[in-house]
Design a protein around this nucleic acid. Structure first.
Length: 410
RNA sequence: GCCAGGGUGGGGUAGUUGGUUAUCCUAGAGGACUGUGGAUCCUCCGACCCGGGUUCGAAUCUCGGCCCUGGCCCCA
């Protein structure tokens, strides 16, 4: 039997309904903040992604050549494409731009819990605002969105300026190595590396910085940094809005293009792959031929959120089974149209079953049956049967629709 | 790329000192029951991941591959 490609998934209706429900909650939060949805191509020039993330990522991407010999890649993330789109289409739009997106991405990696080769991200990008309030808005929005999904999570907020200040004396390669140690909390490795570089004191400062949880301590360790006022304003805004977060100056986000504020969200109940959100302020537009505009954004790992939420009961529609005899079929079609026009899910028999079998089938999923046979056609009524209680009564069509409508979703 | 465990009808399973027609539950279809369902009974449908090897004979032993689950590495 043909199998689906490794790391991909099929979604049956129950799961799709659960996913769509969460997806729309995220969109709705975005809408309330003024973030409008955009969409970019599923594949792009390979160069778009290597420019952002380096040649190394080619190994982790689905790369292919089209019939014109163009080197293309399925998008491994969305931010680069959105900024490319901004440069191509919206450079002169009034700032700030508030955009969001929900899209699938592809990475050629070993699948594990919460990690798939096709996965979905819900993200936002705030383009053209370079202020403390812009930084704060994106973090507040991130918290609102995670709250809306219902996941239990921890939000960590940091800023790259402090660590950069401490690492100032090291060359870029050494900085990268040190950050890797810190990211993994590999303090033994850190001590070793820095001792070899002749800077054992630096290791102690870095560890205290990563471990400290207040701004005052952090500045005491890292010294004065130019953006101090902005950091303080940003955090004050978060506090005023009631965002629950912890400070963490160890967040490195593994990237060189982040410029200031960075933040990450972690689900409480996931295993090794528990990061469900990541973002920060960055500058990318100049790479794609635009102005050096400041941006800030984040992406939510939608699939991990769904794993974290677990098997939630999807809200089910009220279903009406339209049950009819041969003589009642024409009338049943009219009746089913009337129910559907009223927004109610109505299903008719397609199996040429008898009345009893139709009812048996309806009772497996539906709350109501509407029975239409010769008698109902002649009387101009419908027989509305409540399949849970077994009660039934003849009603005129409008009364039946009203009664079912009043029942509401299960 | 690495490590561990696993793969039997759509879902869940029994069966492995190699031996006839592969067990049971559930789901699905039909019937007992042609104007009223859920119970019960009966019938039907439907599986040994793929390939090589050992053997008279492989779901069972063996090798390779694929896939799944969790972890490592990586994580834009």
């Amino acid at each position: 039997m043909l199998q689906k490609p490794r790391g991909t998934r099929d979604f049956l209706p129950d799961e799709m309904e659960a996913r769509r429900s969460v997806e729309w909650r995220l969109r709705e939060v975005g809408r309330r903040w003024g973030y409008r949805e955009v969409c970019t191509p599923e594949f792009e020039d390979l160069e778009l992604f290597t420019m952002r993330s380096g040649e190394g990522i080619v190994e982790e991407m689905y790369v292919f050549e089209d019939k014109g010999g163009r080197k293309l890649a399925l998008r491994p993330e969305i931010t680069a494409a959105v900024i490319r789109m901004y440069v191509n289409e919206a450079k002169v739009a009034p700032k700030p731009l508030r955009w969001c997106y929900f899209a699938d991405c592809f990475r050629y990696e070993r699948p594990q819990k919460g990690r798939y080769r096709q996965f979905w991200q819900f993200g936002v990008e705030l383009i053209g605002a370079d202020t403390a309030m812009a930084d704060a808005e994106v973090i507040m929005l991130a918290a609102d969105m995670l709250d809306a999904t219902g996941v239990r999570y921890e939000l960590k907020v940091g800023h790259l300026a402090l660590m950069k200040n401490l690492l100032d004396g090291l060359d870029p390669a050494a900085q990268r190595k040190v950050r890797a140690h810190l990211d993994k909390r590999d303090y033994d490795g850190l001590n070793e590396t820095l001792a070899a570089m002749g800077k054992p004191d630096l290791a102690r400062s870095l560890v205290s910085l990563v471990e400290c949880r207040t701004l005052a301590e952090a500045f005491a360790i890292a010294g004065e940094v130019p953006g101090r006022a902005r950091i303080e304003q940003t955090l004050a805004a978060l506090d005023a809005y009631g965002v629950k977060y912890t400070l963490n100056f160890g967040i490195a986000r593994g990237l060189d293009y982040y410029t200031g504020m960075v933040f990450e969200g972690f689900a409480d109940n996931l295993g090794a792959e528990n990061q469900i959100l990541g973002g920060g302020t960055y500058r990318l537009a100049h790479l794609f031929g635009g102005d050096d505009v400041a941006s800030c954004g984040f992406a939510i790992g939608f699939d991990r959120v769904m794993v974290s939420l677990g098997e939630a009961q999807p809200r089910k529609d009220t279903i009406v089974g339209i049950v009819c005899t041969e003589e009642g079929r024409a009338r049943a079609l009219e009746v089913s149209r009337a129910f559907r026009s009223a927004g109610i899910r109505a299903e008719m028999d397609l199996m040429e079953r008898g009345l009893g079998a139709q009812l048996a089938h309806a009772s497996k999923s539906a709350e109501f049956a509407v029975v239409i046979g010769k008698r109902e056609v002649e009387a101009g009524t419908v027989m509305l049967k409540n399949l849970k209680s077994g009660e039934q009564k003849p009603l005129d069509l409008m009364a039946a629709i009203t009664e079912v409508g009043a029942h509401g979703p299960r």
